[in-house]
Design a protein around this nucleic acid. Structure first.
Lengths: 256, 256
DNA sequence: GGTAGAATTTAATCTATGTTAACGTCATTA
DNA sequence: TAATGACGTTAACATAGATTAAATTCTACC
């Protein structure tokens, strides 16, 4: 907003999208050189914004109204609820992420989505996503990359849940979030934003609340992390990586 | 091959793809009405076939040569190997499934893929997938559906691993495979093809081999399944569904 | 048709994680 | 400043599932 004056006043020679652009445009812009046309289309997609209060669901499993959402501000979760009230969180979504990029038209949502904190998101007709593939080849590659990445993230989640012990699961997730936030420029020093409660963390890691707390304490006592309200500091990324067998290449950037 | 004579001799009025067509064409054909042009393109994609021996890897995690594979015959797995030799199988692929539908160009494969039994698959340049999106709108919707389905399958796998006890995990997986094979017409009565060993099953369910065997025995003793070499009979689908909280809608068909 | 190696089954023991319950801390509001 | 409620921490005990090992049954191959 303040930066408008700077692009007015000075001759802009930036090839990168301007600073006031959406997180999605910034994210894709750091990976591929989109045309002005493509950037404009992508920004235009995000005109219809919605605000969701912290804790509220904005997609419910079984919904037949399918909408694609682009996350602009705040964190969201995708999750599945079980009959006894327990939950499995499938993944976190951060600004620049797309929920429902590939939709079963005429089918039901296979998971619910909720806001971790106050959310701003763009509601997009999924038909416009197919339009991207038809008309904007660079964007299409970008979206294909997003899809592959979501797959890798969910696959890593399965590995965590299926084969890693509690502390490694936690370390692995912290590193995933670290690299994802890194890409959108949200890490400050080694402090990682952690807006979720330990109960949310437990439901992500497939652990009980108490054991999640124990695992957190374990990493803390080993000198690997430092914890404060809403933030965790990664004190030794190398050790965390080794402990959890995390592979950063799964989240690596690409370039065209 | 023998059926060529029938389409030569008689006047064909089928709207459905002919019987000798590929599993992928049959799968999509049961969901949407493709044009002759689209069917031809899809079959043409699968000209370059490869045979893989049982047990062999055909994608290794970290590979930078990215290829899309369409499974024509046999079963495959996607998996991640850990440093101590343990494995987490992410999902099974059956005829008609596509591996690497969305590829990170210039990036590494994030999982390995191996043949469960002898495999016939088509190797496709991933650029031709993007071509589909540009030129064949019906096919594009079909592929979008495939992607959403793969997501749902992997999400269900995360729920199994994170929140279900051993026997429910097993029941849940059996039902998933049941509905998937149903779609491609591979179920005989209530007998479900199970070409994997109990070790493979264990690596899918995130359990030890011994406990997988116990879980299998548990379901058998409860009268829910009957086991024979390479097949499992689902004796009580309703009870299995309730036990595992399986939701068949996740794999539901769609139609345009 | 016999044999070696693979796959399955069962039992005994151990451990990581779940469960329950109590207590602490902090922020909000009365 | 007290009361409340959400969230975090810790301890004691219970249990599902891991591990190890050995026996048994398949099955592919000679």
């Amino acid at each position: 907003m303040t930066s408008i004056s700077n692009s007015d006043a000075a001759l802009s020679i930036d090839l990168q999208p301007p600073a006031e652009s959406s997180p999605l445009v910034r994210k894709l812009g750091s990976l591929c050189l989109m045309t002005a046309d493509e950037i404009e289309f992508l920004e235009g997609l995000q005109n219809n914004t919605v605000v969701i209060e912290a804790g509220a669901d904005f997609v419910a499993e079984g919904d037949t109204r399918s909408t694609t959402f682009i996350l602009i501000e705040g964190w969201a979760i995708r999750y599945t609820a079980l009959s006894d009230g327990r939950r499995q969180i499938l993944s976190f979504a951060v600004p620049g992420d797309i929920l429902g990029l590939h939709i079963n038209f005429n089918a039901q949502a296979t998971y619910s989505a909720a806001a971790m904190n106050k959310l701003k998101l763009a509601a997009v007709d999924p038909r416009r996503i197919l339009e991207i593939y038809q008309k904007y080849p660079i964007l299409a590659s970008g979206l294909s990359w997003c899809t592959a990445r979501e797959f890798a993230i969910l696959g890593d989640q399965a590995v965590r849940l299926g084969r890693l012990p509690a502390r490694a699961r936690l370390a692995h997730l912290l590193l995933e979030l670290w690299y994802r936030l890194e890409l959108i420029g949200k890490n400050e020093g080694r402090w990682l934003e952690m807006p979720m409660t330990q109960l949310d963390l437990a439901d992500t890691l497939g652990l009980s609340l108490v054991h999640t707390n124990r695992s957190l304490a374990g990493l803390r006592r080993s000198g690997l992390i430092e914890v404060k309200k809403d933030y965790i500091k990664l004190l030794d990324i190398e050790a965390l990586t080794e402990l959890s067998e995390f592979n950063p290449d799964h989240l690596a950037e690409f370039s065209i």
